[in-house]
């Protein structure tokens, strides 16, 4: 059985029917003859296998939270259907609410209750006790246990996330929904957090996680790249990278802004983006070699040129896919 099964789901927040589409899904363009659909909206579809860490990767406003809220039965989709753990998100919402754990994007525990009181409260709400499932949260909870009498509002960002994760896990859910769990968390805590997710996966828990950080994508089993309410691609991180169409060069010179403009002006350039202190550029390699590019840029007055071929990252893939 699939842990999550989503078919053609869409959700429009725009108040007027004729207004601009905002939300999840995408309207078919006028000359699109692929499918005849009643709504004229192309929804999203995907499946998550049991025990998988499935990542939804995309920028802010791409529709990640909407998708999570539909799957956690908090929002009704305009069209399409979805099943979580075999239950329909609309008609069997009560069963879903019994068997999933949900950690919303912003810290949503009671700030004026202590760490222990929060955990206790959520344990009782889910008809269980801390003792019953202590094994599952032990690794995470042990790190915040020294502060168990501290009010949740007074915890640091990373500790808040750990507490929220503990609360979402306390009833041993079958499917765990984590909406941007690492946003606003320091790099060390982020790394730790992903370590914990791996351990939870080993216990058989299916995890659907969203993140705007591309570097976290490679830690998932499979990922979906999402933009403007649409999935660009669903695959394993490895396959997505291997499908990168061109060679990727990192280019550097003394005048980086001029370099970016010059590279973009080149008619053989497919795409070029600033990545930290380098520009990542992919070009029509049949017609242009690295030496030839170096020569061309040299005549444009660039000094200290440094061009080398690099392995594309998920971010490069995202940029390339989102361009099409």
């Amino acid at each position: 059985m699939l842990a999550i099964e989503v078919k053609n789901i869409a959700k429009n927040y725009s108040s007027e029917k004729s207004g601009k589409f905002i939300g999840l899904g995408k309207p078919f363009s006028d000359n699109d003859t692929r499918v005849d659909s009643d709504t004229g909206i192309e929804g999203i579809s995907f499946e998550v296998k049991k025990g998988e860490i499935f990542g939804i990767i995309g920028p802010d406003g791409a529709g990640k939270t909407t998708l999570f809220r539909i799957l956690t039965t908090l929002l009704l989709p305009d069209q399409g259907s979805a099943r979580v753990n075999g239950f329909d998100v609309v008609s069997e919402y009560k069963s879903i609410r019994n068997c999933v754990g949900y950690m919303p994007g912003r810290f949503s525990l009671y700030q004026d209750l202590t760490v222990e009181e929060n955990l206790n409260f959520f344990a009782t709400v889910f008809n269980t006790t801390i003792e019953e499932n202590y094994e599952l949260i032990k690794d995470i909870y042990q790190q915040i246990e020294p502060f168990k009498n501290r009010r949740a509002g007074k915890l640091s960002g990373g500790m808040k996330q750990k507490l929220a994760l503990s609360c979402a896990l306390i009833h041993k859910p079958d499917v765990l929904f984590l909406d941007e769990p690492t946003t606003g968390v320091d790099p060390v805590s982020r790394k730790e957090f992903w370590g914990m997710l791996k351990k939870l996966k080993d216990q058989g828990i299916t995890i659907l996680v969203s993140t705007p950080y591309m570097d976290e994508a490679s830690l998932c089993d499979r990922i979906a790249l999402i933009q403007n309410g649409q999935f660009l691609k669903i695959d394993t991180p490895k396959d997505i990278i291997s499908q990168y169409k061109n060679k990727l060069w990192a280019v550097k010179s003394d005048t980086m802004y001029k370099l970016l403009n010059d590279l973009r002006a080149n008619e053989l350039t497919k795409n070029c983006f600033a990545f930290g202190d380098k520009h990542h550029v992919s070009m029509d390699n049949d017609k242009l070699t690295m030496d030839k590019l170096r020569e061309e840029l040299g005549t444009l007055g660039h000094k200290n040129l440094d061009i080398r071929e690099i392995e594309p990252t998920i971010e490069d893939c995202f940029m390339q896919l989102s361009q099409v």
């Binding site: 908090l74 949900y102 919303p104 949503s108 525990l109 700030q111 709400v125 889910f126």
Partner: peptide, 13 residues
Amino acid sequence: EKGTMEILLVSPM
């Protein structure tokens, strides 16, 4: 407003 209702709704409560 604080978002805790979201968690309460996604629970058997």
